[in-house]
Each structure stands twice: as C-alpha cells, then as structure tokens.
Simulated assay, not measured.
Amino acid sequence: MYVYLFICLIKKKKNINKNIAMGNQTIVNEFFLSGLSDLPALQLPLFLFFLFIYFLTVIWNLLIIFLIVTDSHLHVPMYFFLGNLAGLDLCCSTVTVPRMLFDLYTKRRKITITACKTQVFFFLLFTTSEALLLTAMSYDRYTAICQPLHYTQIMCWKVCVQLMSIVWSLAFTNAVVHTLFALNLSFCASDIIKSFFCDLPQLFQISCNDTYINIVLVFLLSSFLGGGSLIVMFMSYTYIIKTVLKMQVKGKGGKVFSTCSSHLAVVFIFYFSISFNYFRPSTNNHFAADKVVSVFYTVISPLFNPLIYSLRNQEFKTASLSFFRKIFQPKDRIHPN
C-alpha cells in the first residue's frame, strides 16, 4: 500500500503544478463515483445481485449473533470473538453496500465531501477492528491449543472484554486520526473517485493539498497496527501448527486442525484481498481487477467469513440445527382426555 500511496503523491503533485500553471483552482464540493460498470444494461442485474448478497449477509450474521447470545453451549471465548466478527462483517458491508445499491438504482453516483469522509471514517474503523480482532482470535486459538490446561484461567471473560476494548480503542484512534487529517484536504484536480466507495488512497490521489503528512501517518499507523497484528498472528500460528502436527502423530489433531483451518482461511481471504488491492499502484489497466477485489473484501467476504467458521464447526452446526428444528418442527398437539 505504501508504494501505491507514494506514487499517488508524485502523480498528485504533478497535477497540482499543472493546475496552478493553468490557473485552474476550482474547488470541488462533491465527487462522482465511477461505480462498478458504465453499461446501462448491467445496472439492474448488478443491483439485484448485490441486494441479494447484502440480504444474505445481514440475515446470516444476525443469525450467528443471535445463536451465540441465546445458546448457552456457545458462551465460550471462541464464540464471543466469532460473534464480534459477525457484527464487524455486518458493519463493514453496511458501510459500502447500501450506498452502492443506491447508486445502481438511481444512477446518480454523486456523493458529497462530508458523506465521503464519513464513509472513510467508518470503513477504517471497521476494517481495522476486523484486522485486530483476527489477531485476538489467533491468540485465543494459541492459548486453547498450546496451553489447554491453563486456557480457562488465561482466557477468562475479563480478558476477552479487555481484548475487545483494546481492539475498538486502537481502531477508533486510527480512524479518527486519519479522518481528522483528511478534513484539511481540498479537491480541485478532479472530482472522479475511481471506485464505488470512498477510501483514503483515492482521496489522496485527487487532492490538491500536500498529503505528505497524511501518507506518513498511514505509513506509521499501518506499520504499528498491521505489522504488529501480522507478527502476533504469525507467531501464534507457528506454535499452533507445531502443536497440531504433534497431535496428528498421536491421531488427536483432526478437530483442532478443522477449527484452525477455518480461522486461517478467514485470515488469508481478508489479508490477501486487501493486499492485492493496496500493495500495488492502481492504473487504468487494472481498474477492472481493482473493482473485483474491492467487491470481494467489502461485499463477498462479510458473507463468507461467518459461513467458513460455522460450517466447519460442529458445535455451531448443532446449535443451528437445534434452532431450526424449534422453528420448523410442528408442536405436539395436546389431546383432551
């Protein structure tokens, strides 16, 4: 992402100099989102498709949260974190998808600067929270697998709440800092955001201010939060893999490997999709690929993440089946004596 941001900075400075030389300093008050497609025939199919995906995302994540809250068998730290992950996935999807659906339906694609920066704040808040939460979940799995005799003492409810408090505090601080510095940006080079939602790199690219401080903040905070999270997860899963391999030799690692593999799948999907979209410069030749990957981690991933966890977890499948039996199984009729 840093390479991309610095290239954006170089391109932006060239545009600023060009605008100054031409005396063109018209301040932009609203942006035009390029959207997913310019073809009129695709607007309705895309609208219906993403409306269906968003509906499934809302229903499934709310169901997961409901089951975890109401089923006493799921009142353990692993499902506490899973419930938080479902909530974050629901929030991440809600930040971007309703706006995208509105643009597809109305074909306006215009967004005010205030709405754009508000979207940036919440997008940063929820994505940062999810990255940090995945780190907390990796520590929980490390404790459960590598230190099973001390798991209940280490991962007590007080510790779980403290971990989530740290996650939200760091994510909120990160989002507030970036948003406050983004409030000072003005835009005159262009009013076109080449995406279907607002994000910091796109704002940096079209800003007519010097964004050096903004980019340095992105570099420092991303190094601290993202780098720290990856180091903790790498160390946790290194020890987990070693422990699981020993269990496999004894024939006891099947269930453990199934649980951890689902977590690893979620981590891989989350980091791979974001890295693909941000760790390289965005050029005209890559707009289609960028949009596809952006759709994946903002729309598809929030639906698949809880599915990956729940479908590979026997306890959660049992709780789901029990819930649906209570709903669909007819109650026994009471016959009078």
Rank of each mutant, 00 (worst) to 15 (best):
T70P: 07
K326Q: 11
P302R: 04
P148Y: 04
N19P: 01
L88P: 02
Y4I: 00
I145R: 03
S236M: 02
D89L: 00
Y105E: 05
I213S: 06
I334N: 11
L5E: 08
F204N: 14
G251K: 07
K11M: 11
F81P: 03
V256G: 02
L9G: 08
V3Y: 06
L33S: 00
L85F: 04
V266F: 00
L44C: 03
M155V: 13
I269P: 02
I240Y: 06
K158Q: 15
Y54A: 01
P336V: 08
N84H: 09
S258G: 07
Y151I: 07
S165K: 12
S320R: 11
C8Q: 13
A182C: 14
A182F: 00
F122C: 07
L124S: 06
I10F: 09
S138D: 03
G254S: 12
V177N: 02
G87C: 09
V249H: 11
V120M: 13
L44F: 03
I145T: 14
I193T: 05
F122Q: 03
K13T: 09
P330F: 12
A289P: 05
N24S: 15
T135Y: 01
T106D: 08
M1F: 09
S195D: 15
I269R: 06
R325E: 12
G251F: 10
F324P: 07
K194Y: 12
P336Q: 09
F187W: 11
L5N: 10
K13P: 05
D332S: 15
F204C: 13
S165E: 14
C208I: 04
N61T: 09
S282C: 13
G23I: 06
N61W: 01
Q162S: 15
C160R: 11
F328N: 11
G83F: 07
L36Q: 01
S207F: 07
F270Y: 13
Q119D: 11
A265D: 02
Q202R: 08
A171R: 06
C188Q: 10
T259W: 07
D71I: 04
F123V: 03
L56N: 11
V218D: 10
S222D: 13
R109A: 03
I154N: 12
V299C: 13
H263A: 11
Q314W: 15
K18W: 10
Y79V: 06
L217R: 08
P40R: 03
S169D: 10
S72F: 06
M233L: 04
P281I: 07
Y239E: 13
N285M: 06
I20H: 10
L311Q: 07
C208V: 03
F181H: 12
V232G: 06
L203R: 02
V292Q: 09
